[in-house]
Write a protein that binds this DNA or RNA. Sequence first.
DNA 1: GTACGTGCAAACGTTTTGCAGCGGG
DNA 2: CCCGCTGCAAAACGTTTGCACGTAC
Lengths: 131, 131
Amino acid sequence: MPSPSARDLLIARGVRCTPPRIAIARLLLEGPPRHVTAEQLHDELARSGHPVALATVYNTLHHLCAAGLLAPLHVERGRSWFDTDPRPHHHLLHEDTGEITDIPLLDLPLPRLPEGTELVRADLIVRVRGR
Amino acid sequence: MPSPSARDLLIARGVRCTPPRIAIARLLLEGPPRHVTAEQLHDELARSGHPVALATVYNTLHHLCAAGLLAPLHVERGRSWFDTDPRPHHHLLHEDTGEITDIPLLDLPLPRLPEGTELVRADLIVRVRGR
DNA sequence: GTACGTGCAAACGTTTTGCAGCGGG
DNA sequence: CCCGCTGCAAAACGTTTGCACGTAC
């Protein structure tokens, strides 16, 4: 089964189709899951012939997160990463290289949540070093 | 058993005792575990009559992390948190209030690590919302 | 005595904001 | 037609750096 078209994904989630959003959705949502930063994506858009202002890249990334098409990823100080696979799963961070890889969903033991709160997400980041 | 004195902790870990470091260690290492940001600590030092330059606060926090007296905590974009309890445990983040609370060490199922890498730490952050 | 810590201010990289103009629905 | 998106540049934010001076050991 081929990936659904970027346009259809946007429409399905009620996100307005504009040229920058379509270009971004095409790069991120058609094809295999990846992790990107805003800066990376900004460069990639320019190189692919669809230059988009950095501010618009951030805007769109946040919109796509809110729409559930991306997941934000906080692994290190400074940069924000975005995961093109919004389904629950975990991450392994190689601290020497900065490389992030996915870990299939582990069945984590979760604590009892405080009264009246609901779970948003449980992020597990396994940090490793070495060769 | 009373907490060991801040001075003794620094000496035991081979950290030079200077006035800013002693003031910071006193605030952070004597007393119950807490989570602080550099900015918070900077204010607190000023209010307690031991003003320290912000750059020195950062410097010292990093030194204390390297010495194993603190643990860094990456929960959100932008700010870095420091945990005064360096023993392994996990965290619950209330996304509406920004409040961070500790979760006792859970027995997490960990994936096989890549060849030749060693585990640094496994951080679990449980994100919740609501009342 | 010397290596290292300190304060200050200025630089840094990433993200956000303000605003005028454009374009999707 | 109008609301919301866009690009641009400037500002904001937390953090780091460079340097002259001072101090722990």
